[in-house]
Simulated scan of single mutants.
Amino acid sequence: MTVRDVIVHPDATVLAEAAAARLLTRLVDVQSHRSPVHLVLTGGTVGIATLAAVAASPVRDAVDWSQVHVWWGDERFVADGDDDRNETQARGALLDALGDALPAQNVHAMPALSDDVATPEASAEAYAATLREHADEGADAPAFDVLLLGMGPDGHVASLFPGHEALGATGRATIGVHGSPKPPPLRVSLTFEAIRGAREVWVVAAGAEKADAVASALASVPVDTTPAAGALGSERTLWLVDAAAAAGAGTRD
């Protein structure tokens, strides 16, 4: 049986602050063993609040950001700079604040909609090539040290939605997504194969509207029903939730 560590915090604000502190500590710990470090960011309210808390923490300077590579688990396929892009939100919350400490070449954004990148598939293919450049020989993606994921009330993670054909993608690290039930409809996402190649997967979720999905995922229901159930790290799977989101899961502090 898959083991998931579940940590419950009182509310969304404490959750974001605690997740930020945990992330900074983890990055410093990993850097004591290996370099570079590969970190996958997520969007969403709690995900972006976590990044803002990282930016505000004095502990952020304990991390050698020059040896951190930043990736994304998914992206909305819209134009560069659009407020809907996870990259845009992450830059405003954290990356811009890091300045020169984080080299521009270490930030690997999913290609945005443009004349040269006209479809989600083109973006996914380009991102897959970049992932391979930083992966071990024969691998499609790096073994991400920490892969952050938010979760929607329907249980989706990244842009992998219940019942969507993208759930079953194999043999590749990325996929273009059409017909997302949550706008915008065009997206790019890591596949479950890439997600499960991460050393640690952290799912962050807050709010009573997430309670049913949290309970379902922790009960290991089929991925087609609750995709978050398939978000598993090769070494650790960590759920960071607030009390409202944990209400139906039988979890405790």
Rank of each mutant, 00 (worst) to 15 (best):
W71Y: 13
V188E: 08
A249S: 15
A104I: 08
V46H: 08
V63Y: 00
R172E: 15
E17G: 08
D242P: 08
S189R: 08
Q67L: 11
L232V: 15
D83Y: 00
R76N: 12
T45P: 02
D140E: 14
E193V: 07
G248S: 04
A219W: 05
H9L: 14
G179M: 05
A104W: 04
G176K: 10
V37Q: 06
E121L: 07
T237R: 01
R34M: 00
S114K: 04
G73D: 08
L15F: 04
A53P: 02
A16M: 00
V177C: 12
A246P: 04
E165T: 15
P184F: 06
D253K: 04
A124H: 04
V14D: 10
A135W: 11
A97V: 14
G179Y: 11
A215K: 05
D140V: 12
G207A: 08
G250W: 03
P184T: 07
G47H: 07
Q105C: 01
M110S: 11
D5R: 14
V59G: 05
V157H: 09
V201R: 00
A52P: 05
R60M: 10
A228W: 03
A198L: 10
N86R: 09
R187I: 12
N106T: 12
V54Y: 01
P142V: 04
D154V: 04
V70L: 05
D80G: 01
E137Y: 00
E235Y: 07
E87K: 05
L148Y: 15
D242V: 03
D29H: 09
S220I: 00
G248V: 01
A166H: 04
A49E: 13
T45C: 05
V70T: 01
M1R: 07
D224I: 14
F144D: 10
A109W: 03
M110W: 13
A18Y: 03
V37T: 15
V201L: 07
V70P: 07
P181K: 03
P185I: 06
D74L: 13
R196T: 14
I195E: 10
R34E: 03
G43P: 12
A231S: 07
D61S: 09
D116M: 02
D242I: 09
T45F: 13
V223Y: 00
L98A: 12
A52I: 06
Y127F: 15
L147N: 08
G44A: 09
